[in-house]
Design a protein around this nucleic acid. Sequence first.
RNA 1: GCCAGAGUAGCUCAGGGGUAGAGCACUUCCUUGGUAAGGAAGGGGUCGGGGGUUCAAUUCCCCCCUCCGGCUCCA
Length: 646
Amino acid sequence: MIKITFPDGTQREYNDGITGLEIAEQISPRLAKEVYAATVNGELRDLTRPIDNDATLKLHKWEDEEAKHAFWHSSAHLMAEALEAVFPGMKFGIGPAIENGFYYDVDPGEGKVITEADLLIVENKMKELASKNLTYTRRNVSKKEALEVFEAKGDEYKTELISELLDGTISLYSQGNFTDLCRGPHLPSTEPMKAIKLLSIAGAYWRGDEKRRMLTRIYGITFPKQKLLDEYLVFLEEAKKRDHRKIGRELELFTFSQNVGMGLPLWMPKGSDIRQNLINFLTGVLRKRGYKIVTTPHIGNVNLYKTSGHFEKYGADSFQPISTPQEGEQFMLKPMNCPHHCEIYNATPHSYKELPLRMAEFGTVYRYEQHGELHGLTRVRSFTQDDAHHFCRHDQLRAEFKSIIELILYVFKVMNFDNFSAQVSLRDPNNKQKYIGTDENWEKAERDIIEAAAEMNLKTTVVEGEAAFYGPKLDFMVKDAIGRKWQLGTIQVDYNLPERFELTYNGSDNQKHRPVMIHRTIFGSMERFVAVLIENTSGKFPLWLAPEKAVILPISEKFNDYAAKVLEILNNSDICTLIDERSEKIGKKIRDNELKRIPYLLIIGEKEVENETIAVRKQGEGDQGSMKIEEFVDFINSEIKKEIAF
RNA sequence: GCCAGAGUAGCUCAGGGGUAGAGCACUUCCUUGGUAAGGAAGGGGUCGGGGGUUCAAUUCCCCCCUCCGGCUCCA
């Protein structure tokens, strides 16, 4: 007999070799139908794998990520079987579960392509196979045997993967007519896969290496109930409506023109107002926190970037330098603000007493992004960073770093961004030549970041190989409407630029010392930030950011004179207000202006003219009753104050 | 840059080898109204660009551009 301990602490005895599924069945047949995987002694496993010793056991239902993972991983195998049935000779790369569903990278063979039209055929085949309730079986094999299986099949991708595995750790999973190299775990059978949908098709380099063959990646998702799939598809539809590119066009916030060039955003008046509201807000915050605002040119001498190291690292992948016509001096479009800021630092001598020095700029930079990368406002070739550089003494670094974390959290709170994640990005320990600087400085900088984040109780994930070439960083990521993660704020420790630019300060010992630099942004770029803001709010901006605060809707043209008077008062009170004088009925005017997401609709008719009031209607919430004009001005101002006071 | 798909009016989209379509938006007129779509008329297109096939191409073929979904990249 073995003793099984459940998550609530209760213990029960079972026969040796009992499976998680059998335990679930003994608890209740219904539970057995709802569990998809088990964690045994902390290890995620198949439900059908025997348990031989005393163990802790957690059974995973759909709500658990572990269950979804097994469900979708098994679905990827099912898709592979269907692909093999529909396209004989198909070769298989990798096919993992992902956050929402699964994919499989496949090679249909030389000259053959899989198109979107094929997805339905494969999907139907999957449904047919799933309805057969195929069971998943696990088999441990030797490396030799594993290689033989896939060599026989002619699947060079699998043999490449196996050749890198350790003998004794290799398992194969089979269902129906399909066998795959896989660590598992998997569902007991295809029986729970009630709803299946293949979503899209894309190219993906084998092993993420652009020098290797491009495979065809097929994305899909499955659910235990049709209703869940329907809900997911509705979610995707709703997300599309929040796409900042769509809302940006509808609300006339920004545009792109082929005549200007791809990836070069044109801010229209309303978008520009939002952008300016953000800049004004942040400038106020920065001044309170001791930042000095600077302004630098959009170009800089090539030598500046040779000094910084950016030219060596990115020169070939940048907009190429422009030259002066007579001297042939070369200038680059500014890809970064930091070298300019270093030069400002160097323009005057510095005492240890004046550090930390915090230098901020809303600096527009230009980077050549590959054309397939461009994406609305989130990935562009010209963008304005809310950039700042902190020059500090080593003994100030930790406190300075922490104060920036605090600042970012504050700004995100004002913005109502509560679903961000924080990522510590370290250098790739196996690929150190990608980075500049000494091991000692890197180790110090990485330790500084990890410890500062810990001291701020910031929950982070740590990713190796994601650091900037000159230093490690702490990134703040926010998701867009359909769950893609974008980096907004970033804090980067840099010991290298101070060396390269020979930055110094006079210490209390009257000797020259090297300061350390922190690069940081909060919004990241105005472009990306506005994009994420649009998707978070569906274009219903908070009052303080809204480019237009109110619109006056006269019930008929008879009231236009009074409306004009109200308009003048509000605009003179700095409340940007419009007027809708069309000869439309009030219902139509309300609808049209609600769709424009204007925060307040002010309705004016006979009653309002008589009483010198306005009937206030709040966007999305309806009639708020009437107010005197001055009352409304005070009301708006106090609402705005509330929104940005924390 | 790579793989796949798309591009028709300002927007959303239908169509299809032989005179270019709808809804919304826009202009004018009628209507002057009380909290999410009043009515009528009208203007607007080199069907992304360039080649080719054809008596005839927006439609079929080729090349390019841009956009969309991914991959790679992201100072």
